[in-house]
Design a protein around this nucleic acid. Structure first.
Lengths: 146, 146
DNA sequence: ATATACTATATTAAATCAATAGAGATTATA
DNA sequence: TATAATCTCTATTGATTTAATATAGTATAT
């Protein structure tokens, strides 16, 4: 798995909308400012997330974006896969892959599959509700560092 | 973690040299043919592996490459990290990273660390002796598929 | 009407990846 | 000692991906 800037922005944007889930629509610029992303770049990312069914939008004045379903129904894995592609560390694990001559006897393949499984187990079992909850908890019990 | 062609060739080359560990030097072209890699490209990869201390070489006639230490002393993780870089799915986990404004309160960071740990646990606990052993076992007890 | 905000493509700059090319250095051996 | 085989090293090229910017258009509240 490799997370690009685009993927990073996407995850942060979805988390931001999760934290502000009760507040309705937020504009691109609001989100961009809060997650510290280039506005025009975030536009494309949000448009993509919309096409993926994660968020919905409203045009015109008082327009903006919001989640299209509650944060507890969106996992990290869903967003990562959609934006940055499959979690596999190498292409040969995917169904239908046929570029390699000795697929069924490759010594590495089972290992890549293990890595893939371990990764999936983590990101598919964390929802944006979980993350939003952590953020709220952290903001209520601040830690003071010297 | 993302494994490139270069990394894939490197791993396959080290495994090949592990399987043939008792046979001494092998030329680039021999290895290239056995692992199905472009010869000139493999040259660079082997040179890099040599600089990493994984293999040693001999020039001139009857020259070639061989492992510089036994296969049980080389792990998958060592080779992957050396050739394809850190296992982290995103840069912000590395020591000394400072591009992100809210590093210590980022909700995603612990997750990326979990993914990194899970990946490390797998690839750092497999040696090329383990893999070579599997290959030998498979060649002795062939499975017949219909 | 008009300002605000999303929609959609096109373009660009940089980085990375994969591979090829070619000249040079070393060594066994005939 | 000439030669062929082989590793060494650097440069170059083409393709792809990534990250970002630019620009023109569509929808909507006021």
């Amino acid at each position: 798995m490799k997370i690009t800037h685009k993927g990073d922005y996407a995850l942060k944007a979805v988390l931001d909308m999760s934290v502000h889930y009760d507040e309705g629509l937020a504009t691109i610029q609001e989100i961009a400012k809060r997650i510290d992303a280039p506005g025009k770049f975030l536009e494309q990312v949000l448009l993509e997330l919309k096409k993926g069914g994660f968020i919905e939008s409203r045009r015109g004045k008082i327009g903006g974006y919001q989640l299209s379903r509650p944060p507890q129904q969106i996992t990290l894995g869903q967003v990562i896969r959609f934006v940055d592609g499959p979690l596999e560390p190498i292409a040969c694990i995917n169904e239908g892959y046929s570029d390699c001559g000795d697929l069924h006897q490759c010594a590495f393949r089972p290992i890549w599959r293990d890595v893939f499984q371990a990764t999936s187990n983590i990101v598919d079992n964390i929802t944006f509700a979980d993350l939003a909850k952590k953020i709220e908890a952290a903001s209520k019990v601040p830690t003071y560092s010297i």
